[in-house]
Design a protein around this nucleic acid. Structure first.
Length: 220
DNA sequence: GTCCAGGGCCTAC
DNA sequence: GTAGGCCATGGA
């Protein structure tokens, strides 16, 4: 919590997810896999302009049409298929009704969604937390990198190990999980990139191995 | 030109 | 269970 408090004090509430509707959150969660968010925004704008920013519209549209609009997000052919896979699951299983889907038990729903092609651990947790308001902690590349550099975890840990690390130490609070992950992503983008970390001004600088140990921007 | 960004799937060992 | 290849854009 000390870490979270520092991030909150430095950055303020992040007000995530960047998206208005649950459909948009889910679509964004799939599109953002291994790509810069700026590219996702372009794709989201394209989908909106063509009336395809709802799961219903995605369900009706063809893969080539979707793929053409989401090209900036890399892997666009796979992602177009994945979007349709999710929409197909939603309509086949829950009649296209997210309220019904999210009324299922969190653990069961998580397993169901993981079985959908293209929905992995981070994506399912993002959907559950940010679209479904379920208390699950989202782990991403920034989370692993930052907490490894802080010396509190190891980048080799599995997704599940990281998830348990956080969930065993934090209250089961949806709002906390929501903003903590958002803070981590912001910190990662601004100060903790894979190479050339912008340590100057990082609110965790004095706690971070990467910053204090001389690798490579240490202050000795 | 090089590096990298809010993964996931499949296959091989 | 895990390491490695694949997918394949755009900005710094």
């Amino acid at each position: 919590m000390e870490i979270y408090r520092r991030l909150l004090a430095a950055f303020g509430h992040r007000r995530w997810w960047p998206g208005q509707t649950r459909d948009e959150v889910i679509i964004g969660a799939i599109l953002t896999q291994n790509v810069a968010w700026a590219n996702v925004e372009t794709a989201i704008d394209n989908l909106r302009e063509h009336g395809l920013l709802t799961l219903k519209a995605v369900h009706r549209a063809g893969i080539p049409e979707i793929a053409a609009l989401i090209r900036p997000t890399r892997f666009y052919n796979q992602k177009a298929q994945n979007l349709k896979q999710f929409a197909g699951f939603l309509f086949d299983t829950y009649g296209g009704d997210l309220d019904v889907m999210f009324s299922q038990g969190t653990d069961e729903l998580r397993q169901e969604l993981l079985a959908v092609r293209g929905i992995g651990e981070e994506t399912v947790d993002s959907i559950l937390l940010y679209a479904g308001k379920k208390a699950v902690f989202v782990i991403d590349a920034y989370t692993k990198r930052i907490f490894a550099r802080l010396g509190l975890a190891d980048e080799k840990w599995s997704y599940r190990a990281y998830r348990e690390f956080f969930m065993q130490r934090l209250d089961r609070d949806v709002d906390l999980y929501n903003d903590y992950h958002a803070q981590i992503v912001h910190l990662g983008r601004e100060y903790c990139r894979k190479s050339e970390p912008g340590c100057t001004g990082c609110p965790l600088n004095d706690l971070c191995r990467y910053c204090v140990s001389g690798l490579p921007h240490g202050r000795l």
